[in-house]
Design a protein around this nucleic acid. Structure first.
Length: 882
RNA sequence: GGGCGCGUAGCUCAGUUGGUUAGAGCACCUGCCUUACAAGCAGGAAGUCCCCCGUUCGAGUCGGGGCGCGCCCA
C-alpha cells in the first residue's frame, strides 16, 4: 500500500492568516456552488431555513453576527449531514426606518399629491441646505431615494455576512420591496380578503401624531413618564351638588362626553343618571355607573373623553356617548365651536373664549394653559371658586408610545384596514403548540401574547415606502368613496399601485371624480410582508411546485423580542392562507448585552460594531464565540471568549501540521492505546451528534473542544507521537499514524460548522484529495459507522489509565522543576496489583511519552485502584544548550 | 401588578432522570524553550452553588417563600 501523502511543516505558514484565507475560501465556495439548493432533490432530503431579513438601514451590530452565526452553524452541520439546504437571504427595507433616513440624509419630505419630477437628482444635504425648510417631493421621487439608500446599505451588509462566512445561497437574494415580494404581499391580501379575514372600518385607534399614522398593538410600548393629577370640580345639573374628578389629561376637558364611577361606590350613588356640567366649557354630560371605574384611583369618579385612553373608547362604545374629537391628526387642537350640536355648552360664549386660548396648540401647550385657566374662579361650573382644587400632583405613570416615536400616542378616529385575528386565538395557540420551540420555554412568550391580544391586526399604515394596499374605492355622485365595496386588484395586475394604476373598467380620467374611483393611499404594515418570508422563499401561489418543496420551512431562527411580531404574524399568515404551520422549529437566540449586562442601544452609546472584532480576531473566532452561547440565553460581551477561539484555531493548525507530517502507511490499527482512544472518540461522535440533532450545537462544540484539547492534543497525541516516529516498529507506527490521521479528520469535520475557514484550509492540504471530498463543507459529518472496521480495545479503560500514568510522571517532573521533555534515567511506577496488570498493554507508550529509559513496576495494594505513584525518579542531566 | 428567564470560583459560563471530594476557560501563583504549538506545556491555589424553609438516606439540581437582575406584557 502506498505511503500516506504528508505535508512539509516547514513550508506551511506558522499561523492561519484569516485576512487572506477568508476571502479566498469565500470565492472558492461560491465558484463550486457549494451553497446551492438543488431543486431536483426530494423534500425529505431538504432543510429549509426561514432566514430573518435584516432591516437594511443603518449598521449591523454584534448581536446580528451572533444570531446569524448560530443559524449558519446549524446549516453547515445539516449540509454535512447530507441535507439539501435552502438558505436564502433577503432585506427588509420597507417602512419607517428607511423613510427616516431618507428624510434626514436628503432633507426632504414626501407629499403624495405632488407630480413626479423625473429630472430630480439629489445629493446628501449639506449643513447649509439643512438650515432651510425641507424640500417637498413626490411619492415616486421619495421612493426612488429610499431604494437608492437601501441598495447601498444592502451592499455593506452583504459584504459583512460574506465575511462572517454565512453559507447562504446568494442566488436567492430578495428585498421585501421588490416586485416579487410586492406581488406576494398583495396576493396575500387578496387571499385574506376572499376568505373574509379582512375588513376596513373607521374607528378610534392608536395614532402617532408625528408620523401621522395608525399603529398596531405590536408597534406600541409603554414608557414611564412624569405626569400630574389635576383635581377639577364639576357641577351637577339642577343641584347644589358638585364633585371632583382627577385627570392627567385636563387639555381634553373640552372633549369630555361623560362622567363615571363604580356602581358600588357609596359616594356617588345619588349621581348616576344625572347630568354633570363641565367647568370652562359648561358642557352637559351624562353620569353613569361602570365597573371599569376604579374607586381606589384618583377621586373614584372620572371624566370620559374622546379619547384619552383605550377605556374611554370602550365607554364611548358601550354607552353610545357623543364623539367630540378635539385633537387633530397632527397632534394639535382643532378649530371647533361650542354651542352647536357637536359641542353643546350652557355658556357658549365663555366656552368659545376659553377654547380660543388653546385652539391650534399641541397637547403639552394646551395642558399648561388649561391648568392656568382652571385657576380662574370665573370658569367654575358651580360658583364655588377655582375649578382646580389644588396644584397639580406630579406622578410617574406608564404612557403608550410608538416604539420608534418621541411623543405619546393619541387615540383618534381614522379609517384603517384590519386582519381579523381575535376570533382565532385558539387556532393560533394550537399552531404554536405544533411547532418545536428551542428553548421550549419560549413558546410561553407566544402563548402569552396571543392570549392577551385585544385588537385585530391593523395592517394599514399612512406611509409611503412600502407595499401599497391593492384596493380602489368607487366614488358616488358626490365624490364620496364607498368603502364597503372596495375593488381589490386582480392577480394579473399585481404588483399594483392604486395611486397610479387604474382598476378594471375605469380610466385614469375618472380618478377622484364623482362616479369614478379613488386609489387607496396607504401601504401595508412592514410585518404584513415580512410575515411571509417562508412563502417568499417558496414562491407560494407564484410557483406551486416549488412551494411544495420548500413550505413549511424546517427552521425559523430569530430573537425573543420579536416573538410577538415576526413569529406571531408569520404563524398567523400560514394559518390563514393554508391552515399550516410556517415551520417546524423555531430557534431563539439570546441577546448580546454589553459587559455590564445592559442592553445595547444607540441611546446608551454602548453598541459594538462587528467589523473591528472580525478583523482583530477573525471570522472563525467570532463564530466560536457565538457558538458557545446556548440558545435563548442572553450573554454579556466578553472579548476573552474571542481570544479562546483564536487559541483553538492556532492549536488546530499546529496539531494538524504535526499529524499530517507524520510519515507512515495506512495500516491496521493494532495497538491497544490507539483502539482505546478511538473507542472514546466514537462515543464522543455519537453524543455530539445527538446533541446537534437536538439543535444544541453549543454543547456539541464545547464537548468537541474539550475532547480535542484534553483527550487528543494533550494526551493521545503525546502518548502516540514517539511511536508514530519509531522506524523500528513499523506496525506500531502505522497504527499510530493511521489513528492520528483518522481522528484528526473526524475532529476537523466536527469543528467545521463553527470554524469554516481554518478547517477548510487544513482539509485542503491532504484530506480533500485523499478522501475525494474536495471541501470539508461538502464532506460527511462523522458517524459511528466510520469506526466499524476498527477493533475494540481489550480494555476500554486503558486509554484513561495511560493518561493517569503519564500525569503521575508529569507531576513528578513538575515537582522536581524539570521540563516535561527531560529524559528519565529510571523510575518506579507503583499501583495496585490490578492496575499494574491493566496498564501493561499501554505502558510502553507511557514510558516513551515521558522519555523514560529505565523503569520498575511495583504492586502496592495500598494505592487506590486506577491511580499511580511515581517513586525514585532519576532525571538525566539537563542537556547543554546549543 | 402579571408572564418567562437568570443568580454556581475575581470574570464568562457548563453542570442531562437528585447520587462520591461541584467543573471548564480566562485571570492569578509556581515551574518548564519539550523535534506541532511559549498564541505552548506541566503543576497549583481559588466556591456559604443569592437567602430561608421544606421533601429526601442524600439537594447546585425537586417544592414553597423571599431578595437581586434582565426581557416581554399590563
Amino acid at each position: 500500500m502506498a505511503a500516506f501523502r504528508t505535508v512539509d511543516p516547514q513550508s506551511l505558514p506558522r499561523h492561519f492568516d484569516p485576512s487572506e484565507g477568508e476571502g479566498r475560501w469565500h470565492h472558492a465556495w461560491q465558484e463550486a456552488g457549494l451553497y446551492h439548493w438543488d431543486e431536483n432533490r426530494p423534500r425529505e432530503e431538504t432543510f429549509v431555513v426561514d432566514t430573518p431579513p435584516p432591516t437594511a438601514s443603518g449598521s449591523l451590530h454584534i448581536g446580528h453576527v451572533f444570531s446569524y452565526s448560530h443559524t449558519d452553524i446549524l446549516v453547515r452541520y445539516q449540509r454535512m449531514r447530507g441535507r439539501n439546504i435552502y438558505y436564502p437571504l433577503g432585506w427588509d427595507d420597507n417602512g419607517v426606518p428607511t423613510e427616516r433616513r431618507v428624510q434626514n440624509l436628503f432633507h426632504v419630505r414626501c407629499d403624495p399629491t405632488l407630480p413626479h419630477d423625473p429630472e430630480l437628482a439629489l445629493e446628501p444635504a449639506s449643513a447649509k441646505v439643512r438650515k432651510k425648510p425641507p424640500l417637498v417631493i413626490s411619492r415616486k421621487n421619495f421612493l426612488d431615494l429610499c431604494a437608492e439608500v437601501t441598495a447601498e446599505d444592502e451592499k455593506a451588509f452583504l459584504e459583512l455576512f460574506a465575511k462572517v462566512g454565512l453559507s447562504v445561497d446568494w442566488r436567492t437574494e430578495y428585498a421585501t420591496i421588490d416586485a416579487r415580494c410586492r406581488t406576494l404581499a398583495q396576493r396575500s391580501f387578496l387571499d385574506l380578503h376572499d376568505k373574509g379575514h379582512t375588513y376596513t372600518v373607521e374607528a378610534p385607534f392608536m395614532w402617532d401624531v408625528d408620523f401621522q399614522m395608525a399603529l398596531s398593538q405590536a408597534d406600541v410600548e409603554d414608557k414611564m413618564r412624569p405626569g400630574a393629577y389635576h383635581d377639577i370640580e364639576f357641577a351637577v345639573d339642577g343641584s347644589d351638588r358638585s364633585f371632583v374628578i382627577s385627570t392627567t389629561r385636563p387639555e381634553l376637558l373640552g372633549a369630555c362626553v361623560g362622567v363615571t364611577a363604580h356602581p358600588d361606590d357609596e359616594r356617588f350613588q345619588d349621581l348616576f343618571g344625572q347630568t354633570a356640567i363641565t367647568p370652562l366649557f359648561h358642557a352637559p354630560v351624562p353620569i353613569f355607573a361602570s365597573d371599569k371605574a376604579d374607586p381606589e384611583k384618583g377621586t373614584g369618579i372620572l371624566m370620559v373623553c374622546t379619547f384619552g385612553d383605550q377605556t374611554d373608547v370602550e365607554w364611548w362604545r358601550e354607552q353610545g356617548l357623543a364623539l367630540r374629537q378635539l385633537l387633530g391628526k397632527n397632534g394639535r387642537l382643532r378649530q371647533v365651536t361650542f354651542g352647536d350640536d357637536e359641542f353643546p355648552s350652557r355658556d357658549a360664549d365663555r366656552a368659545n373664549a376659553v377654547y380660543a386660548e388653546i385652539a391650534g396648540k399641541n397637547v403639552e401647550q394646551a395642558r399648561k394653559r388649561i391648568a392656568e385657566l382652571l385657576e380662574d374662579p370665573a370658569h367654575s361650573a358651580t360658583g364655588n371658586g377655582p375649578p382646580l382644587q389644588s396644584p397639580p400632583r406630579p406622578i410617574e405613570h406608564a404612557v403608550k408610545f410608538y416604539e420608534k416615536g418621541d411623543r405619546p400616542l393619541e387615540i383618534l378616529p381614522s379609517r384603517q384596514w384590519f386582519v381579523r385575528l381575535l376570533d382565532k386565538k385558539d387556532a393560533l395557540l394550537q399552531k404554536g403548540s405544533e411547532i418545536a420551540w428551542h428553548p421550549p420555554h419560549m413558546e410561553s412568550r407566544f402563548r402569552d401574547w396571543t392570549e392577551n391580544l385585544s385588537l385585530d391586526w391593523c395592517v394599514s399604515r399612512q406611509r409611503y415606502f412600502g407595499v401599497p394596499i391593492p384596493v380602489w374605492y368607487p366614488l358616488d355622485a358626490h365624490g364620496e368613496p364607498d368603502y364597503d365595496t372596495a375593488i381589490v386588484a386582480t392577480p394579473d395586475q399585481m404588483p399594483v399601485d392604486p395611486m397610479t394604476d387604474v382598476p378594471a373598467g375605469y380610466t385614469e380620467a375618472q380618478r377622484n371624480q364623482p362616479g369614478g374611483f379613488a386609489g387607496e393611499a396607504d401601504i401595508f404594515d412592514t410585518w404584513f410582508t415580512s410575515s411571509m418570508t417562508p412563502q417568499i422563499g417558496s414562491g407560494w401561489v407564484l410557483d406551486p411546485a416549488r412551494h411544495k418543496k420548500l413550505f413549511p420551512a424546517d427552521i425559523r431562527p430569530q430573537s425573543h423580542e420579536i416573538i410577538r411580531t415576526w413569529a406571531f404574524y408569520t404563524i398567523a399568515k400560514a394559518m390563514l392562507h393554508e391552515d399550516s404551520v410556517p415551520w417546524h422549529h423555531v430557534n431563539i437566540s439570546g441577546w448580546i448585552l454589553d459587559p455590564d449586562r445592559k442592553k445595547m442601544s444607540k441611546s446608551l452609546g454602548n453598541v459594538v460594531t462587528p467589523l473591528p472584532l472580525l478583523e482583530e480576531f477573525s471570522a472563525d473566532a467570532v463564530r466560536y464565540w457565538a457558538a458557545n452561547a446556548r440558545l435563548g440565553v442572553d450573554t454579556a460581551l466578553d472579548e476573552s471568549v474571542f481570544k479562546i477561539g483564536k487559541k483553538l484555531i492556532t492549536k488546530l493548525w499546529n496539531a494538524s501540521k504535526f499529524v499530517l507530517s507524520q510519515e507512515g502507511q495506512p495500516g491496521p490499527i493494532t495497538n491497544e492505546l490507539d483502539r482505546a482512544f478511538l473507542r472514546e472518540l466514537r462515543t464522543h461522535v455519537e453524543q455530539a451528534t445527538k446533541d446537534a440533532e437536538a439543535f444544541d450545537l453549543a454543547r456539541t462544540l464545547q464537548d468537541t473542544e474539550r475532547f480535542f484539547w484534553s483527550r487528543f492534543t494533550d494526551t493521545y497525541l503525546e502518548l502516540a507521537k514517539t511511536r508514530a516516529r519509531d522506524e523500528g516498529d513499523p506496525a506500531g507506527r502505522d497504527s499510530a499514524v493511521t489513528t492520528l490521521r483518522f481522528a484528526l479528520s473526524v475532529l476537523l469535520r466536527m469543528f467545521a460548522p463553527v470554524l469554516p475557514y481554518v478547517t477548510e484550509e487544513i482539509w485542503s492540504w491532504i484530506y480533500g484529495e485523499e478522501r475525494g471530498e474536495p471541501f470539508i463543507h461538502g464532506a460527511a459529518w462523522p458517524t459511528a459507522a466510520e469506526f466499524d472496521q476498527i477493533e475494540a480495545p481489550a480494555d476500554s479503560g486503558s486509554f484513561d489509565l495511560a493518561i493517569t500514568a503519564l500525569a503521575a510522571i508529569n507531576k513528578a517532573k513538575a515537582d522536581a522543576e524539570v521540563s516535561m521533555g527531560r529524559e528519565v534515567e529510571h523510575l518506579e511506577l507503583a499501583g495496585a496489583a490490578e492496575t499494574m496488570v491493566r496498564i501493561e498493554p499501554v505502558l510502553s507508550d507511557v514510558l516513551l511519552a515521558s522519555r523514560c529509559h529505565g523503569h520498575a513496576v511495583t504492586s502496592d495494594d495500598g494505592i487506590d485502584v486506577g491511580s499511580f505513584q511515581v517513586r525514585d525518579a532519576r532525571f538525566a542531566p539537563r542537556p547543554d544548550k546549543k
